[in-house]
Amino acid sequence: MSETVKQILDRFQSDPYMGRQGKVYTDTSDFMRITGGDVLVFGDGHYLVLRDEVERSYGVEDPKYWVKRCRHLESGQRRLLKLVFYEKFKLQMGDIKITCYRSPRKEARILDLVRGDSRFMQGFSAEDEKGNTIRVLDVVMGKRLDNWIYGLDVDHKTYFFEYLPKILEKFIGACEAIAYLHANGEKHGDIRRDHLWRETHTGDYVWIDFDYTFDFHENPFGLDIFGLGGLLLYIVGKGFYSQKDIIRRLGDEKKAPDMDPADFLLVFKNRLANLQKIFPYIPKELNWVLMHFSAGASVYYETVDEFLSDLRPCLKNMG
């Protein structure tokens, strides 16, 4: 007869688990049923489910039922388990809708590719008894990079001269990590602010979540490059700025610089790309890189290497 949760916990933990004692699962297909207090058994491991992961956005908590926060009972370590969830959805980017897919196979493959590379989240994949590809992930101990930057309690000018050079150096490293994926025929698939984290102890930047994919033929890495451009804009500006934000900052509409649609991002038309207009100390070379993502651009970056070959000299000039 197979073990109960209580028997498993008694075997692994000296202190008794005080919460709900649920079921033991060896088949994770019905992930909605699996919840705190259940134990997942697959590969060589036992994982006690603590709770469903939640995504926090604009103060709203959105549960991700296919991602479980767990304790690996053999080691006592915290782990994130991503269970198989096939999802096809339309990602809205400005006026463009992109069909995206969630692919456990892709994420499992990238975890193998980047094993031991601290620029990426770490983990491995294993199959449950029904052949579902579960990704077992180390928890990144840190904070979203954008939240960390937002939380720096300094004005933009201080930020720009005292913090940005170091941040930009690390961001270039993060871009090189994406170039490494591309060189190996892989794409991150979902480069956005909440997928680049800053590890607390090392200060290293770590990419997370590689399970998105999409079917672009002529420019397979275009979305990743656009994502990097958006992140760079946030990092340089210490935030995004709409026309309203600019007026609010200046306190008077008449003081706002002249701006036209070409100064804003090509895709998110309410985000100012031409940051030099509100922060005149931004060097023209760095502003030029940002302007490649603006509605006024006539040339786009087709590879991360092109993007980096313009960005690296900006860092040198700031030092």
Partner: peptide, 15 residues
């Protein structure tokens, strides 16, 4: 394609 689509998806004819 629009300019934004060309950036994101690429354009065979333009290339």
């Amino acid at each position: 394609v629009s300019k934004a689509e060309e950036f994101m998806f690429g354009s065979v004819s333009n290339k």
